[in-house]
Design a protein around this nucleic acid. Structure first.
Lengths: 195, 195
DNA sequence: GTCTATATTTCGATAGAC
DNA sequence: GTCTATCGAAATATAGAC
């Protein structure tokens, strides 16, 4: 079948998502108009509605896609038995994964309050599932006498906050490689939780 | 002099700022309309312009006020000689100050990209000045052989990210007092940077 | 699938009466 | 100082031609 002139559904769709992600990260969801997204893609505003029912779905699909990717990547990662080795693996994974997609990380963190109630609950559930692995590692390490933390839940949130903070200053091509950054943060995490 | 009926400039002004802070924190600057702010205060939209030239100034004044308050409070704090004692003081101060004004903290962190270029530069300068004290403490501690950190700048940002993260989960009236939270975080900071 | 055109709403900000 | 009324611009989303 010959293609209708101007038909690009299979490539325009991803381009819409990509443009939305970039603009949401830069200016914020509420500050970005559908017309801006359309202009970035190179179509008129009306054409966007072939790819998303509305602006809210555009945001939600980006965030759910990011969280799904995070959990899938983590599920495929190596899981050493030793809590110390598992914690190092988690730490390095978290930094690497987040530095590889700064826009998605930024949007997923900053735009939570622009989700509808139902969409928010879904994203929160996925985030909780991710955090639960880290808390499990900490609990095992405490039980094994390797770690000394006052409260595994608080420590989980503190470690994730510290690690995710790397996205606020790291820029590719700077003086440190990702591997070097991983090592610096792993050093801090290891010392902070060790017995 | 008798007051003109409906004249409340001395109390309405702060109420406008308060309402804007609350709404910006909850929904985001771009998502909040001047009419919403006016409704929260109990006046019509036009009356807001007796207290601010425009919406941008409303945001900027809130953020500059918060940063000024932060730096002023820190300038009045005790500054022990010993780097370890200074670091503990800084840590406890940071947590206490931030937990006491969650809305201002949230807005000052999340709405940076909604500032005009000039306003952004001003706020960034104030934030940098605050971070510089922590980096100075770390440098002194390293020189004294008390601390072992790979990079004082990165450690500064990592520690602040971890500490500020407390605002994402702490709620007044929970199972932990602020003092207990301070102690838990100080334990992690101390271990993370110690030699 | 994309376009033009538009319905409908809402926005920031201002003018002028009181 | 606050109100009502409104201007001009921009927003989301839809309808229908091609």
């Amino acid at each position: 079948m010959a293609r209708t002139a101007g038909s690009h559904s299979d490539i325009t769709g991803p381009r819409v998502a990509q443009a939305a992600l970039q603009l949401f990260a830069r200016h914020g969801y509420a500050a970005v108009s559908m017309r801006q997204i359309a202009a970035e893609v190179g179509v008129q505003a009306g054409a966007l509605y072939n790819y998303t029912p509305d602006k809210q779905s555009l945001l939600f699909d980006l965030m759910r896609g990011h969280m799904d990717e995070l959990l899938a990547a983590r599920a495929n990662a190596a899981t050493p038995r030793d809590p110390m080795a598992r914690l190092e693996d988690f730490t390095r994974f978290h930094i690497r994964f987040h530095l590889e997609r700064p826009d998605a990380v930024f949007v997923s963190y900053m735009e939570l309050r622009n989700l509808t109630a139902g969409n928010f609950a879904t994203i929160e559930g996925l985030r909780r599932a991710y955090e639960d692995e880290l808390e499990g590692i900490l609990r095992e390490g405490v039980q094994a006498g390797l770690f000394a933390v006052a409260d595994t839940k608080i420590t989980t949130l503190a470690v994730i906050a510290m690690l995710t903070g790397v996205t606020t200053w790291y820029r590719a091509g700077g003086r440190l490689s990702v591997a070097q950054v991983e090592t610096i943060y792993w050093d801090m995490v290891r010392k902070a939780v060790s017995a």
